[in-house]
Amino acid sequence: MSLTVEAPVQANPVEAFVRTERIPHVWCPGCGIGTTVNCFSRALQQSKLDLEKVVVVSGIGCTGRVAGYVKLDSFHTTHGRAIPFATGMKLVNPELTVIVYSGDGDLTAIGGNHFIHAARRNLDLKVICVNNFIYGMTGGQVAPTTPVGAICTTTPYGSFDEPFNLPFLAESAGATYVARWTAFHVRQVTHAMTEMMRKKGFCFLEILSPCPTLYQRRNRLGDGLEAMKYYKDQSVVRHGANTKEIAISFQGPIVVGKFIDIERPVFLERMNKQLTRTLDAEYAGCVGENVCG
């Protein structure tokens, strides 16, 4: 005999981290962004960070909406500018763990300049990039990540220019942690997010994620589930792989794993060191009460 019991006290673990009054969210059926939010919530739990000191900053686009759903101090900025916003916030209050959570177009097209410079400076930011190979919110235009040959609304005869290989870009610019997983790899994504939260420095995680409404449909690749099966079947785990060699081709194999995990002084450490060396006792320091008044 099957029976229905009253809901127990324990709720969906993600609910402690989302603004449940705003659910259902805007994401399409089969979109993987919500899946990454599950991973994020578990990572927050595992990291044992003080949630009052965790901030999510997003740009514009489908992934940009993450900021609106997480139950944290969260800032939905303009298109491409999540990293500059996060820069100002982190420098003024280094106690905050500042997570930049945005899409591939936002972070690497309109925000590409900020991305490479934040990596160069080694700002202590945790950048989570949900890469669905396309501009979703605006209806399916080609992105800097679109694999060659893919059909988009603005490449109706197939995309022909070279996409960014994001881990290679991040490493080249100076990131201290670089990983790539897919929405299929929920445990690994959670683990990578947890590692980033515990690590100091510019950390970058690329998560390939289905866009069934636009990328999959226009390219006759089935629905979100088909994309997830593709990730499952075609992903090859190669930790420490040379990022130069892990570009993604249309429906080709996907190299996943943690590629970079190094130590390098962060911007504020370098600044404090330099100013202490040159100004000595005259240096008033840069953090805390001085800045916030």
Binding site: V57, T77, P84, T87, G88, M89, K90, V291, G293
Partner: peptide, 12 residues
Amino acid sequence: SMALAGAVWAGA
């Protein structure tokens, strides 16, 4: 300019 917003919302 956008860095100002982050700084201001952090309290500066």
